[in-house]
Design a protein around this nucleic acid. Sequence first.
RNA 1: GCGCCCGUAGCUCAGCUGGAUAGAGUAUUGGUUUCCGAAACCAAGGGUCGUGGGUUCGAAUCCCGCCGGGCGCACCA
Length: 562
Amino acid sequence: MKQPLHALVLQAFAELTRQAILPADLAAPAFVIERTRSREHGDFACNLALLLAKPARCKPRDLAEKLVAALPANDVVDKVEVAGPGFINFFLGAAAYHAEVARVLDEGDAYGRNTRGAGRTVGVEFVSANPTGPLHVGHGRGAAIGDSLSRLLAASGWNVKREFYYNDAGVQIANLTLSVQARARGITPDDAGWPEKGYRGDYIAEVARAFLDGATVTADDRKVTANGDVEDSDNIRAFSVAWLRREQDQDLKAFGVDFDVYFLESSLYADGKVAETVDLLTRHGHTYEKDGALWLKTTDFGDDKDRVMRKSDGTFTYFVPDVAYHLSKWQRGYRKAITELGADHHGSLARVKAGLQALDCGIPKGWPDYVLHQMVTVMRGGEEVKISKRAGSYVTLRDLIEEVGRDATRYFLIARKGDSQLTFDIDLARSQSNDNPVYYIQYAHARVCSVLRQAEEKGFTFDQAHGLHNLSRLDSEHEQALMVELSRYPEIVETAAAALEPHLLAAWLRELAQAFHTYYNSHQFLVDDAAVRDARLALVVATRQVLRNGLDLLGLSAPDKM
RNA sequence: GCGCCCGUAGCUCAGCUGGAUAGAGUAUUGGUUUCCGAAACCAAGGGUCGUGGGUUCGAAUCCCGCCGGGCGCACCA
């Protein structure tokens, strides 16, 4: 794969220059070469002189001048200037951007991909909702973030495994089973015999009905037929879990999200992983018995208090399978693993990491990476909708997809940094759906398609090679700006993937669309001069390609018409 | 009380591995179409970047205190 843009080239330049000028006994400061905010400062700026000024005991501007003088000649950089307090500004030549447009068209769907991951495997765990009810907005946020993150990592060369971890046998599932069983017996939530902590939602009645009807459900990872026997808890449990898993699968598919692995908590018990974990922890002397329970000294590994592993009744706390599950990831070869979860679970981070350290099996301290998203507040009719599974008051992901649309919902949930709280105003999202930025971006894509349709109607045939050959005819401010924007795409992909922050891509796509719309409004593309026309079409088709690539990484469609 | 996250324009939010005059959408006001889709474009007004210190040549960005909001602090999952 070719070197992404010029940043790396420039970096090499600065390195050469630094070596030429820096006294041998001085340590190299960590300078950066980055995009400038305004074009008057050129395309890239370097802060090396500012950082070097103190150790070298020189004025930064003088140093900058010396650095510039030492720069080797090259054909990418057109002009170098010293500016402000001592920045070195690089102005790229037009040819560099023309080459980038050609590269977009040449690489097509592959444009913007990089080899950072170099075929290594990363396990990305997200959603991981227990099958006790439909997915809600919070799960949607996790799904949008986790899935886009996975796509970004895949675009960075990683072999991505998407995992969904769920509990099919614990207390909550027992509770689900009791609820369905009660419904099957004709007991409703307000009746006397209703389970104390039963799930009250209407969907429970649906499951019960289907169970009595002897229905068969097929989820992504299991298939169960009901026998209709109200006394058969095992069958009710299996059927209910399958039913809710199927519901979740449907919602996730409608949302454009797929998983490679469904991992059952019960399997950790079944194949001895829990026992192995307890054994490892005990053998390494990190446990002790107190009050009839088995404790892990997580405080030795940064937790704020020790944790119970095995309760006095002999069962394990959820913390143990959590550690066992991560151990399984490590043993399955995920040297990089990402766990995406809602902020209401962040409390488990410290103890799971402590548990993994206590295993003494070579897991590095910082493993795995965690990506947290803060809570989503849902507003409807000017009021906050309280989400409660038991009460059955609920805004499901399905509702949102149906009411607001898949793309708009995904964009809304992905466009903001995960660690800020999110207010999802349903009325706003519905009534102003046309103002949702996702349509603005998609419209740019559709517009290019429309231009090409028009070109055909008018009898113009687009000659791409001819257009690329004449890119030098594109010298207006708007054309320059659009080319600069296009060339940033590979950098954005790399940055967003490295920072595990897909919202950076969402924000940038809007900027790209804006640059395009501005261009569209200021220039006629289908002009009689074939050289100019083909050049403009080449630029615009390249823009469409990058929009498409970017939208795809966010799991959004790129419509030809809207 | 302890821990994590957040506090930037009326509203929703970017920017935060320190950098050159603080950005966008939306809302408000005014303009743009005999011409490729006006789901668009252009322009104006609107900010003590919660607050007080500190580090630095330079702080919205890093550190500490305080104020305000969210989430979590079980032998629940």
